[in-house]
Design a protein around this nucleic acid. Structure first.
Ligand SMILES: NC(=O)c1ccc[n+]([C@@H]2O[C@H](COP(=O)([O-])OP(=O)(O)OC[C@H]3O[C@@H](n4cnc5c(N)ncnc54)[C@H](O)[C@@H]3O)[C@@H](O)[C@H]2O)c1
Ligand SMILES: NC(=O)c1ccc[n+]([C@@H]2O[C@H](COP(=O)([O-])OP(=O)(O)OC[C@H]3O[C@@H](n4cnc5c(N)ncnc54)[C@H](O)[C@@H]3O)[C@@H](O)[C@H]2O)c1
Lengths: 219, 219
DNA sequence: TGAGCATTGTGAAACAATTCACATTAAATT
DNA sequence: AATTTAATGTGAATTGTTTCACAATGCTCA
């Protein structure tokens, strides 16, 4: 069994969205077209689609509906897969609103809080439990993915609860790199890192702009 | 002039934070220690630090204060660098709260909205302008980085305004891949993609768990 | 003073992801 | 039926990143 490149999996979501929009308008699509919509190269699109085991035809390209079916078979869980979110603050609330009803097979089924004013009630359409009950709730609901949106200092504590309860994938918004066993897939989303990185490359770009100008003027 | 790996730039923010915590406790640090805090290998830490042009000593490791100085010289702008954010909704508000006063040299100096109830006043400590004035405000304040937190359909429109006004780095939360010239650095943060990806790998991990169990029971 | 030692800096190897390049294919056209 | 055409699928090359492995270093302690 070959392992699928991580980035390819991420791009399937993108292709799915593009194809879904396209479905109404046309029955077939070429790799070139998908590539331009997704801001990639045609070769990369074809390389990604190889893992689906579905082939287009040279003359027609890919059948939009069939391609959607194959992406869905690959990407979407066949039975409902459940997600929990720890920390219903700024980030937690934004996520609850955003993911509500987005993908029926992938559902935020529970949230957890330390703050007694927030738990033991529905928050944005999702039941909120005390973090103390996380282990049993996760096991009872069969939750497999956890989102960490608690303050940095609490992140490892929550991750430990998640892992102990059998969660196999974590999205971590805290700035603390998490300790987790290798069979748990962790995706860190550190906005401060993104910010500093983009600011750095923006400066580089400005610098080379001004260098070009000074080069010009030396001519 | 050699170009610095993108991932390395991202990790400097992480090292900076770890070192900042450490500064009070100790004067020197080994690559091993930084690696364990950052969940990386010691070799990778040393490889990253190479680009700073600062060397530690075999016996003492790195001088915490000097290393911080070099990271700051590399990562932090020498004069205030300004950021704008378009769209003060769920994501926009969360970011405004989070980045307020985080790094004095890197400041969210303006936000933009279409909704007249939101603009022409302060929102969470940051002046909010009409998106129609984005071009002139960006130029006047010398803003170089833009954050896109508007609905997907508006994202390209806002990106075009940003690029035309001279912005050189964009963080894009919308799910639309953006068209931008090559001298503008774009970082896409697509939470739906992260979600689907983590869910996929969590399922794989569950599957191989149960395969191991069935292997065990066959022995 | 010098042997022992743990750590650094870095060339080279390994690995991962992307791009190139082209033989192959099936439809459209002659 | 043969020819032309523009796309696909993929081996090989390239690019980017991480890891390995070890000589060089400078501190400690005999
Ligand atoms: N807001 C942002 O834009 C932003 C950006 C980047 C990173 N982050 C990170 O995301 C995390 C959350 O940020 P936020 O702005 O939503 O914070 P927040 O303070 O608004 O929300 C955190 C919530 O977690 C709850 N909480 C605290 N400890 C808990 C525990 N042990 N178990 C369960 N719940 C607990 C709190 O009661 C609170 O409701 C932080 O680590 C922050 O660094 C946030
Ligand atoms: N909320 C989330 O957790 C989440 C997660 C993933 C992605 N996103 C993406 O982030 C973006 C914003 O999400 P949100 O939840 O904050 O949405 P939101 O609807 O809460 O906020 C969008 C804001 O943008 C403003 N706006 C609309 N058009 C504008 C324009 N042309 N110029 C300036 N402002 C404009 C609206 O008035 C609104 O205040 C969307 O593209 C969404 O897909 C959000």
């Amino acid at each position: 069994m070959k392992t699928v490149p991580h980035r390819t999996v991420g791009r399937f979501t993108l292709y799915w969205h593009i194809l879904k929009d396209l479905e109404q308008e046309q029955t077939h699509v070429y790799s070139h077209f998908l590539a331009s919509k997704a801001r990639l190269t045609a070769a990369q699109v074809r390389r990604d689609l190889m893992v689906l085991g579905y082939s287009g035809t040279p003359a027609r390209g890919y059948d939009v509906r069939k391609l959607l079916d194959h992406i869905e078979a690959f990407l979407f869980p066949s039975t409902e897969q459940r997600i929990a979110i720890a920390g219903v603050g700024n980030i937690g609330r934004a996520l609850l609103k955003f993911f509500a009803g987005r993908q029926p097979m992938l559902r935020i089924a529970a949230s957890f809080e330390v703050n007694p004013e927030k738990y033991d009630r529905m928050v944005l359409g999702c039941p909120c439990y005390s973090i103390d009950n996380a282990g049993s709730v996760i096991r009872e609901l069969g939750i497999t993915v956890g989102i960490i949106a608690v303050p940095d200092k609490e992140a490892q504590f929550v991750a430990n609860l998640f892992v102990a309860a059998g969660i196999k994938g974590i999205i971590n918004f805290a700035r603390t790199p998490l300790q987790a066993p290798p069979d748990v897939y962790v995706e860190d989303i550190d906005l401060a890192r993104s910010m500093d990185k983009v600011a750095y490359f923006a400066r580089q770009s400005l610098k080379s702009d001004s260098m070009m100008i000074s080069k010009e003027s030396h001519k």
